[in-house]
C-alpha cells in the first residue's frame, strides 16, 4: 500500500490538469484556475488521510475548486463581463500559454452565462457528468439543472455558430 504522501502526489499529478481545465471554464482565466486548483489541492492534502479512502477524491477536489471559483467569480464578474465584451469585438485569436481563456470564442461565450448556469454547462460538457450527478453535486433538483443546461446550450449554440472556436 502506497504511503499517504506518495499517493497524494500521484493523485495530484494525475488529476491536476483536469481540475485546472474545469476551473478555467468557470473562472475564465488559466492563472486564476491554477491558483484556485492549488488551493483546492492544499485543502485536500490537509485532510488526505480521509480523502484517500474515497472512491473519487477528484470529485471532492473538483467540488471545492468550483465553489471557490464561483465565490471568486462573483467578485470578478464585472471585470469578466468587460473582458467578454472586448472579446466579442475581436477576431478569435490563437490562445497562447497563460493567455486568458476568455479571449477564445467558447471562453467568451461561457463568461456571458450566469455563473450557476456556467457551472452546470461545464459539469455536463467538460466533466461529462449526467444530469443526476450534477444535481447531487450542486445540491439542486434535476429539473433546475436541466433548465440551466437548456438555457446554456441555447446560448452556446448561438455564439459558437457565429464564431468558430480558434484552436491552437
Amino acid at each position: 500500500m502506497a504511503r499517504p504522501r506518495e499517493d497524494f502526489q500521484e493523485f495530484y499529478q494525475a488529476s491536476y490538469g483536469r481540475t485546472v481545465a474545469m476551473v478555467a471554464a468557470v473562472a475564465g482565466s488559466r492563472h486564476e484556475a491554477e491558483d484556485i486548483a492549488q488551493e483546492a489541492y492544499a485543502r485536500a492534502l490537509a485532510r488526505w488521510s480521509r480523502l484517500r479512502a474515497y472512491d473519487l477524491p477528484e470529485a471532492w477536489v473538483r467540488k471545492v475548486a468550483l465553489r471557490l471559483a464561483i465565490d471568486s467569480g462573483r467578485r470578478l464578474r464585472r471585470g469578466a463581463l468587460a473582458s467578454a465584451r472586448l472579446a466579442a469585438r475581436r477576431d478569435a485569436p490563437e490562445p497562447e500559454p497563460g493567455d486568458d481563456l476568455k479571449y477564445t470564442a467558447l471562453g467568451a461565450a461561457l463568461l456571458e452565462l450566469p455563473v450557476r448556469e456556467r457551472q452546470a454547462v461545464v459539469l455536463f460538457y467538460l466533466a461529462d457528468l449526467p444530469v443526476d450527478a450534477i444535481a447531487r453535486e450542486c445540491g439542486l433538483p434535476a429539473g433546475t439543472v436541466k433548465a440551466r443546461l437548456a438555457a446554456g446550450r441555447r446560448h452556446l449554440e448561438q455564439r459558437l455558430s457565429q464564431q468558430p472556436e480558434a484552436v491552437a
Binding site: F8, Y12, R18, V20, E34, Q38, A42, L101, L106, Y125
Partner: peptide
C-alpha cells in the same frame, strides 16, 4: 451536444496537459 462537447474538448486540451507545480508547493500552501 456532441459538437458542443467537441468545442469543449479542443478548448480544454492545452489546459489538461498543464504541468502541475511541484507537490512541495502544495505542501507549503497547505
Amino acid at each position: 451536444d456532441a459538437e458542443i462537447r467537441e468545442h469543449f474538448e479542443r478548448w480544454a486540451q492545452p489546459l489538461r496537459i498543464v504541468a502541475p507545480p511541484p507537490v512541495d508547493e502544495i505542501h507549503r500552501r497547505a
